[in-house]
């Protein structure tokens, strides 16, 4: 039996009737055509599907769409303001923190929360806090750098 849900996605109220087994990731990708959220595993390890639900980074492959009913969801598509990239997106580009780009949306969303919630970041702490995302291309160092450079910028202002 389908369940009606109402979710604010990237600032826009969306209604849908979903099968209870629909994952939040599938709702975003298939129903709402927001394909920037990727699926890389089936055990909630890789983090490619990371989105923000009410400001918390979550793995949207391990959350039912019905659980997000009434919540506010931000996906990678919701970060840039028109032509202007979100600072985290820009920092990933500037630091060469992506290669194939498949894990990138998940890493960026994860990093947005990280920078939002944590202060006093150093390299070791950032590496630890990024443990929920896998990248096979970059070797992580430039990703860590992309986060640290924003943290440093924040420290200066």
């Amino acid at each position: 039996m389908n369940v009606p849900i109402s979710i604010k996605v990237n600032g826009v109220e969306r209604q849908a009737e979903v099968e209870p087994r629909t994952l939040l990731a599938s709702l975003l990708r298939e129903t709402l055509c927001l394909t920037g959220t990727h699926i890389g595993c089936d055990t909630a390890q890789c983090g490619c599907c990371t989105v923000l639900v009410d400001g918390d980074a979550v793995k949207s492959c391990t959350m039912l769409a019905v659980q997000a009913d009434g919540c506010s969801v931000t996906t990678i598509e919701g970060l840039a303001q028109g032509e202007e990239l979100h600072p985290v997106q820009k920092s990933f580009h500037d630091c060469h923190a992506l290669q194939c780009g498949y894990c990138t949306p998940g890493f960026i969303m994860s990093s947005v929360e990280l920078l939002e919630k944590y202060r006093d970041l150093d390299e070791g702490r950032v590496r630890e806090l990024l443990e929920g995302n896998l990248c096979r291309c970059t070797g992580y160092n430039n990703i860590v750098q992309a986060v640290l450079s924003l943290a440093a910028e924040r420290g200066r202002t």
Partner: peptide
């Protein structure tokens, strides 16, 4: 426990 995203859920 787990990772940051897991701890959020």
């Amino acid at each position: 426990i787990g990772d940051r995203q897991v701890r959020n859920r």
